[in-house]
């Protein structure tokens, strides 16, 4: 099945091979550039996140894709925010239900998942009653269902991820067009 391709690889001159490798690197780096450009444009460190829990159902289900933005305007009640609790890696996507803006500009924010019975004080660190603007990664601006399932599946089955990356890399190298 692959004899054709192998013969083709053998036949390629060094320059052709270099060209194919460069093409491949070009694709990888443009993907990285798009991601970082989006991060700059939206002013959010990770502009697209995947929903991992059901705490915002029926609005967001596991595997839905959220597009974040963090404009200069302050957080307001009703905004759905993605935030991090210090000491924990996985960010949380919940809605702001209570907010107090101190005259100094400091914001005291309390969040809650639409599907949860109680507010998030039990999720924050012990003794922490509020989160602040610096804990927030972004506000949810856009929504695309299901697409994030791909990354969830790949995280659950890493072999699949390596197989897919390997296959795509090989395909790019032996692609004759």
């Amino acid at each position: 099945m692959f004899e054709d391709e192998i013969r083709f690889l053998r036949k390629m001159s060094k320059r052709q091979l270099a060209q194919q490798v460069l093409n491949f690197l070009m694709i990888v780096s443009s993907a990285l550039m798009v991601w970082k450009g989006l991060a700059l444009y939206t002013n959010s460190e990770s502009p697209i996140v995947v929903v991992l829990s059901g705490s915002m159902e029926p609005a967001f289900y596991r595997g839905d894709l959220l597009f974040l933005g963090m404009p200069d305007e302050p957080v307001r009640v009703g905004d759905i925010c993605v935030f991090k609790i210090s000491g924990r890696d996985v960010p949380i996507v919940h809605r702001v239900i209570k907010l107090h803006d101190e005259k100094t500009g400091k914001q005291y924010i309390l969040t809650k998942g639409d599907n949860n019975q109680v507010d998030d004080r039990g999720l924050y660190n012990p003794g922490q009653h509020w989160i602040h603007k610096e804990d927030i990664i972004g506000k949810v601006k856009g929504f695309l269902p299901y697409v994030g399932m791909i990354t969830i599946i790949m995280n659950d089955y890493p072999q699949l991820k390596y197989a897919l990356i390997g296959f795509l890399g090989l395909y790019m190298l032996i692609n004759r067009e």
Partner: peptide
């Protein structure tokens, strides 16, 4: 897909210029 509806109370105090509290909500 859905509406998130809530009753909002807003007030200003000496120490905090914006206070917003959701009193009731519904999907």
């Amino acid at each position: 897909k859905q509406l998130f509806v809530s009753v909002l109370a807003e007030y200003e105090t000496n120490s905090h210029d914006i206070n917003q509290v959701i009193l009731w909500d519904s999907i």
